[in-house]
């Protein structure tokens, strides 16, 4: 068979709408991951065992199990507990939560990379604990985390196709809808895949630039 360009052009606008939804899920989910990951990282460093131990367990568990099932859980189980999320909202929460367990490791490494002398100096100057974090430790830890954090934004985007399983209107969901009417799967599936691939390649290119820039800064 051969690729039907007219058919492909016909369905392209719908697929691009789907891609937009995928990008929204990426951006918002990533924002959730960035914030929640920092919360996880700080909670795991807490001196209160009743905070650090359970948070550590939950983080490890979420990181160790498949995102897809976590999405099912959010979308199908939470409504039974009285919390019904829209597909997109469930997808964003799922992606954000899952990737927060990765970003928390990045933050942790960044925090541990701050030399111990910085903590010593903060104590010698009697800075309050909160101030030590906000003005000494995090301003040093976060910049050095940026390259690794950028890479997780790419990884997160590559997991967005899984939202098809909870009916978020991303390209594959859109494609399936088209196939249900036309019974011609080749073009929609190929194009949905190519759209994802193209964005992933662009993001990966941007990621390399960010990495290079920050490496330059770190050695300057």
């Amino acid at each position: 068979m051969k690729f039907d360009w007219n058919y492909a052009l016909d369905i392209l606008p719908q697929l691009l709408d789907g891609l937009l939804t995928a990008l929204i899920a990426t951006v918002v989910g990533y924002a959730v991951a960035l914030v929640l990951g920092l919360v996880f990282a700080l909670a795991r460093r807490s001196h209160q065992k009743w905070v650090s131990v359970p948070v550590g367990f939950v983080v490890e568990f979420i990181r160790g199990t498949p995102l897809l099932i976590q999405l099912f859980f959010l979308f199908f189980v939470l409504p039974q507990l009285g919390l019904a999320l829209s597909p997109l909202a469930a997808g964003i929460v799922g992606l954000g939560l899952h990737y927060a367990t990765y970003t928390s490791e990045v933050y942790r490494a960044g925090i541990e990379g701050v030399p111990p002398g910085q903590w010593d100096a903060a104590i010698a100057l009697h800075l309050p604990r909160r101030r030590v974090w906000t003005s000494v430790i995090l301003p040093q830890a976060v910049p050095r985390s940026i390259p690794a954090l950028t890479n997780y934004s790419i990884a997160l985007f590559k997991d967005v196709p899984q939202l098809v399983a909870i009916t978020v209107a991303e390209p594959f969901t859109v494609g399936r809808g088209i196939i249900a009417e036309t019974f011609r799967p080749f073009e929609p599936i190929t194009m949905a895949g190519l759209l994802y691939l193209a964005v992933a390649l662009v993001l990966s290119y941007i990621g390399r630039i960010v990495e290079r820039r920050y490496k330059g800064m770190a050695t300057a």
Partner: peptide
Amino acid sequence: TMVFQQFNLF
């Protein structure tokens, strides 16, 4: 307060 061998400026 203390001054350190490695300065430890922020």
